[in-house]
Structures are given as C-alpha cells and as structure tokens.
C-alpha cells in the first residue's frame, strides 16, 4: 500500500477525456516520476492530488484518507506540498518573510488570529526559517524582495518553503522547466540531498529525461490520459510502448 493511491481516476473537459482510468501507487519514501508527451494529462493528474481539480470518477487516497473534495489548504495540512512549474512565491515580501509563512502554517494551522503578537518575539519561527535559508544557501538574500532573485534562487526558495512544513509527500511540477543546464543539475543535486536527508516521498512530473533518470526510482508513463507502463527507469528506457508514445511510431508499427 503506497502513501498515495490513485484508483480509476477519470476527468473530462467538455469533449476531451483528459484522464481515463488512471491507477497509480506511489510507495512511501520513494521518488516516483510521471512522464509523458505534451497533453498526456500529467498536470491534470497532479491537480487532482492537490484539490485544484476534482476528478469525475475514481478515488485519490493519501495515507489512507481521501483527498477528494478537500480544499488545497486542507490537503496541504495533511502533508502534501506542491512546487509549481513557475516558482510561486510571495514576490512582494522579503525572502525571510517568505520563509516564515510556511513555518507559521506548520505551527499554527490554517488560521490563527495572531494580530497583536510581534514577529521579533516569534523566536522559534525565526530560528527555523533562518536554518532553512542557511540550508538552502539563501541566507545572503534574507532581506531582499523575493521578486528580485534569480529564477534558480526562486526555485530553491519555493522548495525550501515547501520543506519547512515537513511534508510527507512533495509534488514537483516540472521543477527544471526553462532552466539552464547548470541550474538543472543543481536542482537535481538538491532533490537528491533532500531525499537522502529526510523521510519524504517525492512525486515529480518532468519533461527532461536527464532529470527523470537521475532521480526516479519508479516511472509511470502517461499517454492520452492513460498510464501506459509503470516500471523502473532501466526497464522504461528501452520499453517499446514508451518509444511509441514519445516518437509516435504507432502508425509505422501497425
């Protein structure tokens, strides 16, 4: 039984069957990649995990509890954090403030009326946030506006914000999209380190095969809303169905 169990999930947008009978099991403490050509339904599937979309059919269970019908913030409080394709951070706030917000969310829950307390008195929050910044090598940017950081730094900040909540499942939506090779490699190293240091499950959607094969322990290939195969990276590499899906050899084979 995996930490994330997806059963018979289907989702239709008008005439388009975006997801069709998707079954998926992400094992605890593994790195599971979901790959597939454009329009395969990867992002739709991810959105069904985090409460942005509700599938028409099927179930999504996280740690034995259904996530369907819950709000994004509730699902996050259950232990699922999400990293977006373009870094979603609080651009108008300082880097330190960005880092403190998830720390508050972890400690105080979805809402707390702490309107009279002053931030400098929140010693434990400050300590945790500073530790996270140091760990991610962002301490130099502490008092900078998050908007003025480089793309790679924003990505690291977003990952740090997700990790500050000690999530059990980290979802990454094309974390290296639009990055230079060097930044991509840094991100791979960072994710490897996170994997080694923490008890965390990582599910990753990715186009870049280099990233996928450096990180993933299991790979699910999605095509036209349906999982084609699920296997280890080595088996996926030479799999004929995968090549078919990616290179469009269906017709020549038939």
């Amino acid at each position: 039984m995996g930490i994330l169990e997806v059963k018979n999930v289907g989702k239709r947008f008008g005439g388009l069957q975006a997801l069709n009978d998707v079954n998926l099991s992400v094992a605890e403490n593994s790195v599971h990649a979901i790959i597939g050509p454009n329009g395969a339904g990867k992002s739709t599937l991810l959105n069904c995990f985090v409460g942005k979309l509700i599938p028409d059919t099927g179930s999504v269970m996280f740690d034995g509890q259904s996530v369907l019908g819950r709000k994004p913030y509730e699902i996050n409080q259950m232990g699922i954090s999400r990293v977006f394709q373009t870094p979603e951070i609080f651009a108008d706030l300082t880097v330190m403030e960005n880092m403190m917000i998830p720390c508050f969310a972890k400690r105080d829950g979805a809402f707390r009326m702490h309107a009279i307390e002053s931030i400098p008195n929140e010693k434990d929050i400050i300590a945790k946030a500073e530790h996270m910044l140091e760990d991610m090598n962002l301490s130099d940017h502490r008092d900078m506006h998050a908007a003025s950081m480089s793309r790679g730094d924003k990505r690291r900040l977003e990952i740090a914000m997700c990790l500050a909540q000690d999530p059990r499942l980290l979802l990454l939506d094309e974390p290296t999209a639009g990055m230079a090779r060097a930044d991509t490699n840094n991100t791979i190293d960072l994710l490897k380190r996170i994997k080694d240091e923490r008890d965390i499950t990582i599910a990753i959607i990715e186009h870049d095969m280099h990233v996928v094969f450096s990180l993933a322990e299991r790979i699910t290939v999605l095509a036209q809303g349906t999982p084609l195969v699920e296997d280890t990276p080595d088996n996926i590499k030479g799999h004929p169905k995968v090549r078919e899906a990616y290179l469009g050899e269906t017709q020549t084979a038939a």
């Binding site: 994004p72 913030y73 996050n76 609080f90 651009a91 108008d92 917000i101 969310a105 972890k106 914000m161």
Partner: peptide
Amino acid sequence: KSNQQRLNYTGLN
C-alpha cells in the same frame, strides 16, 4: 495580496 495561490498551497486559509 502578493500570491493567494501560494498561500492556499502553504496550508493557509
């Protein structure tokens, strides 16, 4: 004000 989407996905209502 800055990013309501990130706030929701940070477990805050």
